[in-house]
């Protein structure tokens, strides 16, 4: 017998697929979770971003046309050159990047990378991403400064999940790369970003 057949032979059950599906669905009715006031989703998200476990800085823009100026402000604050890894996202084509040096492949020691999240999550202050032709993943982990545009905010993690077929990666970023592995002392920038800057769009 193959390993597969052997293992499955020991795991036979009598429940029908429909019965199992009904039970699984029932287990998700009204889940307990920290409550997010529906009238305060935006405020809750912004408050979460400033928690010490997330520790993001925040800016706000009305349209994507304002994005280069917002990034220039951040770079000036952080004494960074106007050099940026940007994803090949057509939405960024409408921005005037005069004064910036842009590239779309992240270097091993990339100083700063820009990404557009699908949404932010108020419950946890998470930023939600999916990989695709216009959205590589690696720059978001290589860069020291992770700069993220957030066009939309949802209340709960469940609202951020993807229905249907998934892309290669669907991921939630909640803060910066951190470790407490040496004597329990918290250090930011263990492997990935040390700084997270959120630019709320709209």
């Amino acid at each position: 017998m193959t390993a597969r057949a052997d293992i499955l032979a020991r795991l036979t059950g009598t429940a029908t697929p429909a019965g199992i599906a009904a039970e699984a669905a029932a287990l998700l009715i009204a889940p307990e979770r920290p409550r997010v006031d529906p009238a305060q989703v935006e405020e809750t998200f912004l408050a979460r971003l400033t928690l010490s476990s997330v520790a993001a800085t925040v800016d706000r823009i009305a349209t994507l046309a304002d994005l280069p100026a917002a990034i220039a402000r951040y770079c000036a604050d952080q004494s960074l050159p106007l050099t940026l890894c940007v994803p090949p996202d057509p939405r960024l084509g409408q921005c005037d990047w005069t004064g910036f040096t842009l590239h779309d492949r992240a270097a091993p020691d990339e100083p700063a990378a820009l990404a557009i999240a699908r949404c932010g999550v108020a419950e946890t202050g998470s930023l939600v991403f999916e990989t695709g032709a216009a959205a590589p993943m690696l720059p978001n982990f290589l860069a020291l400064h992770h700069i993220v545009v957030v066009p939309q905010v949802v209340a709960y993690l469940e609202d951020a999940t993807l229905p249907g077929a998934h892309p290669r990666a669907h991921y939630w970023v909640t803060g910066v790369s951190g470790t407490t592995d040496i004597e329990g002392t918290y250090v930011r920038g263990a492997h990935g970003p040390r700084f997270l800057h959120v630019i709320r769009l709209g």
Binding site: S126, M137, R168, A169
Partner: peptide
């Protein structure tokens, strides 16, 4: 585990790199 509402990085990987993906 750590008292955090969520760990910093939660990733769902589904299959290998897609045809047009830049990495993976």
């Amino acid at each position: 585990a750590t008292g955090a509402p969520l760990s910093q990085y939660t990733t769902f990987y589904t299959g290998p790199k897609r045809a047009l993906d830049r990495d993976g």
